[in-house]
Each structure stands twice: as C-alpha cells, then as structure tokens.
Amino acid sequence: MILFILCFVLFLIGLYGVVTKRNLIKIIISIAIMEYSINLFFILIGYIKGATAPIINDEVQAAVFVDPLPQAMILTAIVIGLATTALLLAIAIRLYRKYGTFDIRKINSLKG
C-alpha cells in the first residue's frame, strides 16, 4: 500500500510542477514525471508477490504469473507518451526561436 501512496505522491509532484513552473522545459519534465508515476501505478497493479514473468515455455512451470495486461498497456502508454513529449519539445524549440525565451510569462500573444 505504501508503494501506491508514494506513486500517487509522485503524480502530485508532477501536477504541482505543471501548475507552478514557469519554464516550458520544466513543464514538459513535470508532465513526464506524471506519466512515469502512472506507468509505475500500472506495473504495481499487475504485480503479484513471488510470481514470475508471464512467459510460458517448457522449463517454467510456475503456478503464479504476474498480470501481463498492465505491462502491455503501459508499453502502449509509453509509446504515446513518447509521441506527446517529442511534439511538446518540438513546439518548445519553435517557441524559443520565436520569442527567445522559455519563460511562459513572456510568451503571451494570446489574450482574452
């Protein structure tokens, strides 16, 4: 249970970063932290104490496997996170080119 709580704390740290940080790159890093905490959460869901990896072959005859479905889901989520982060970084680089700064207080051409 303590692991789940720590995982949630990690999520909140990421959320805190997204809300309070003023630097584009720090915001991206905060989103990445949130994503990792969720990845961790999924792995914890599938974890069973003492179980082995869910690969069936002749040598392994273990009765208990960890749940492979969260692992498959998290692999998909990692790929999606990769795409999101790459796009965010690309936009951040372009923004830096236009404004000469990463500070969101100075990037404010949209109002109202």
Binding site: F11, V18, I38, F42, T84, L88, I91, L110
Partner: peptide, 29 residues
C-alpha cells in the same frame, strides 16, 4: 507565435487530461 503558443497550452492541458484518464483506467482495471 499564436499558433505555437495555443498548441503548447492545448498540449499541456490535453496531456494532463490524458494522464488523468489513464490513471482512472488503471484504477478501474
């Protein structure tokens, strides 16, 4: 300028939304 800024804003909020959705999917599972 405007397009990039709007897209960044959209991505950050959209990204947080996606992570919240993923979190609750994990909970449901």
């Amino acid at each position: 300028r405007q397009e990039l800024e709007a897209s960044f804003k959209y991505q950050v909020l959209g990204g947080v939304a996606s992570l919240l959705i993923l979190f609750s999917i994990g909970f449901l599972y």
